[in-house]
Design a protein around this nucleic acid. Structure first.
Lengths: 137, 137, 137, 137
DNA sequence: GTGGTCTAGACCACC
DNA sequence: GTGGTCTAGACCACG
């Protein structure tokens, strides 16, 4: 688990933490049940205030990505599907629309966008496979 | 020129204006020399504070997309530097990664994501076709 | 909108705010679109730090009860059902179980519990009716 | 004497123990003079740190519910003040209100809530019947 | 004016 | 040791 922060990006630090942990979970680097680094040491390592990390973890918990047990630590959650399929698809569709607009600005053809998506999906799948291989549990 | 604002997206309103105008310029809806609506009527139409539109125009000018001629109005400039293909692809790839992570957390399969993308692309194409039909100009 | 805090209850202040606003919304005292008191004045009135109120509002937003528009204020949301029926029922069932256990301890018969629930539901319905009557919009 | 802990509820574990023992005492499941399980086996059975059970027992003693006799064990004391019916009903009514608010936000109809309560009551009754059958003691 | 982020430091409850 | 709450005060982006 390696987090990299960019203090100049304008993106809130706590959100950078949130997104990187979500990405690690999605890529298989963090599996359900895994424990996250505890707040204080992580804050120290990242040269950030304790509360900033705490806010990131709180956000992750409210998004249902992790589970925090006061006095024990924070853990990656088993993911139970809470939203109904339609709602989930709509959320993603909304994000896709933003990408499409952006791609259109940048004069990237529709078919190229699709193939780009396939390539990135493959990259993620590879990562997950590698993680499975490294820690066959 | 039709701007659509989303007040709930969290994305700053002035940036939505900036991006949509840039998009229209990139897509050919606005051509070099075309005049933009003046601040006051546009603000009224969008139900937005005049400062917000002014800020958007200022941002566009500082990015070299438009040119304001005091007392006359604002005009689209000759198009600025277009990024190299690789760079543009990388930008979009980065955005796609974020969507992929999100889709994974929402337990949406890879293939479903691809088909969702295709469907949204089709929807956009339809829209464009309809616009061309309405304003054959 | 009148909030009353109990600083000795052990219950976090920000949660007291959250619960009272949720209750007001459920009882009809706050309707979709209504604006909430802004953070700073409310904090002053409640003799609480600004951040405490902000945390309460953030929690309300993440629960989908309110909508915050930076620079404008916070508003009660139109409620769109996000979770699917099953999941919602399960959440409530879980809370009911806790009450049942408690009632059982206190030697309150099943039938009495049901009639107690009916009485409280009626009380809420009355409140809502009164609010509708006071502000027939 | 059957204790059920919920590690995810946010409610401190030691308080869950305290409340359930108080409840059992109030309901007559534990009578004055009855002995409580000793700390170590109970901690083992509940999969909890011994300190947690010890803290619960200390709390119970300080509340005058139990009495610890060094070297012998812990016993239920002559009963403290049993709450009047009204007071007990009010406690439960207060908890029901919280559930009603929650149900309202989840858009669950009043009648559905009542039927949900009935269903959960039945489930509990079934459980009790099964327990009686298994341990006819 | 609004809300949002971050820091710093104190205190608490829990395990 | 863990996470959670609250305070106080600074700075920023937005309208």
């Amino acid at each position: 688990m390696l987090l990299e922060l960019n203090f100049k990006s304008g993106k809130p630090v706590y959100l950078q933490i949130v997104d990187q942990i979500k990405a690690a979970a999605a890529a298989g680097g963090l599996k359900p049940g895994d424990s996250l680094p505890t707040i204080r040491p992580l804050a120290e390592q990242l040269r950030v205030n304790r509360n900033t990390v705490a806010k990131a973890y709180a956000e992750l918990e409210s998004q249902g990505v992790i589970e925090t047990q006061a006095g024990r630590g924070c853990f990656i959650k088993e993911n139970g599907p809470l939203l109904r399929k339609d709602a989930r698809r709509e959320l993603v569709a909304h994000e896709l629309d933003a990408v499409i607009v952006q791609a259109h600005h940048l004069q990237i053809e529709d078919e190229e966008l699709v193939s780009l998506l396939r390539r990135r999906l493959d990259a993620f799948a590879d990562q997950r496979a590698r993680h499975r291989h490294e820690q066959p549990a």
